[in-house]
Design a protein around this nucleic acid. Structure first.
Lengths: 223, 223
DNA sequence: TAATATATTTTGATTAGTCAAAAATCCCTG
DNA sequence: CAGGGATTTTTGACTAATCAAAATATATTA
């Protein structure tokens, strides 16, 4: 069975592949950066993952998950997201604080317990951040979502997913009632200022920068 | 912070010290046996634990926890036992199957989550096996209990603790309704056969050997 | 108490994961 | 298309945890 280090590399590679779909190839630089290791370490891990047929790797050519690697990565992600959901729903932890906990529990939990949790939660399809929970079979059912930056002025949206696990960002999202599930209206795009203004519930409108807005994915209610 | 390997050694040493109170010193042989490693490994780990002031160790003199080592061991045990309780009470897992799960989760859970679980459970003092849950401060409040082998014939008892985590033994205990909390009557001691006969609820009486009976700790109701 | 059995320690080796820094390669820009 | 900067790989080293097997110490018993 893969060590938790290997599990972490695979998960990271998967997420990086999603993030930069430039041929879906992950460079040693970004892998090393994402894992917080030196580039040399990333290289040697890439070779070792390739030896285990979990990634495709050519020297100087970056790394890409094989089918097996992807399955394993999704299994880790499934654990991570079910654990996050469980901590929020069953134990009342705040969604802004469950990420790190899940990061370590995901390597320690058994399949049996995970299934029990899945059942307990009613087989959810997304976690508290709106991230899709892969199935046990290794599939991801992802609804088509729109980034807040792409939504037209005046549109009514439902927040669906927040693409950043950083505690501070999540608390910002919280403060302005922009959790997944809530409705909001896009009041304005200020292209010069690279800002988006939106409004949720009875709260005063909030203006955020492009990069922040790009991390909030929504469904259109009326566009 | 100690690695999970170190945590496991400390926990084992603590449990071995409890088990064989022959000066409370644990030999390399029993440590190696309990950890499932070779004696040489136990020796080198003993030296390294001693370097970290977690155990007292003299060559050929066995190992014994220092105050710090004991505190750490109890912290691990607290985690283990709270996790077991949680899995049984909150998720409905069977007490016979939670040990291994707790064995790995105990190294991954944060103090914050552990406190939440403790609160959720109502600050229990024993786990589903009747094992005492050390306090966060590192104390063990252990009620005085009697082994089933020491109880007089005819006595009415309440099962309080089962000193064996083995799944098969626990299922045996289950089958005869001898879980912690249940009442039973000691019908007979057969010294020649080294057997104890007891009876719980409306079930037929059960006879078990001395070693099995010694693993069942009880409180006397009427003696 | 000497011989023998048992327990412990030592030695040398291995694996996983890591770093620092040198060397090699790539690729973009002029 | 030739440098030069960026990226990647290599090299050598280190730590934690382990094993096998040889060497040593302790304990038992005859």
């Amino acid at each position: 069975m893969p060590s938790s280090t290997v599990e972490n590399y695979l998960k990271r590679i998967y997420l990086e592949q999603q993030a930069e779909p430039a041929g879906e190839i992950v460079s040693m630089k970004s892998l090393a950066g994402a894992m917080g290791v030196t580039p040399g370490t990333a290289t040697s891990m890439a070779r070792s993952l390739a030896d285990s047929r979990l990634v495709a790797y050519e020297p100087y050519g970056g790394v890409k998950l094989t089918a097996r690697g992807r399955t394993l990565a999704l299994r880790v992600l499934r654990r991570h997201r079910l654990i996050e959901s469980f901590l929020v729903d069953a134990l009342g932890l705040d969604w802004s604080e469950v990420h790190d906990e899940a990061e370590s529990l995901e390597h320690a939990i058994s399949d049996k317990l995970l299934d029990r949790i899945d059942e307990f939660l009613g087989f959810p399809s997304v976690d508290p951040h709106g991230d899709p929970i892969p199935t046990a079979a290794g599939e991801v059912r992802q609804a088509a979502l729109t980034a807040l930056t792409e939504v037209e002025e005046g549109a009514e949206v439902r927040i669906a997913r927040v693409l950043d696990q950083d505690e501070k960002f999540l608390r910002f999202v919280d403060r302005h009632m922009l959790r997944p599930g809530t409705r909001a209206r896009v009041l304005a795009h200020d292209h010069a200022a690279e800002a988006v203004t939106l409004q949720s519930g009875k709260l005063p409108a909030v203006t955020m920068g492009r990069t922040a807005a790009a991390k909030i994915m929504v469904e259109l209610i009326r566009g």
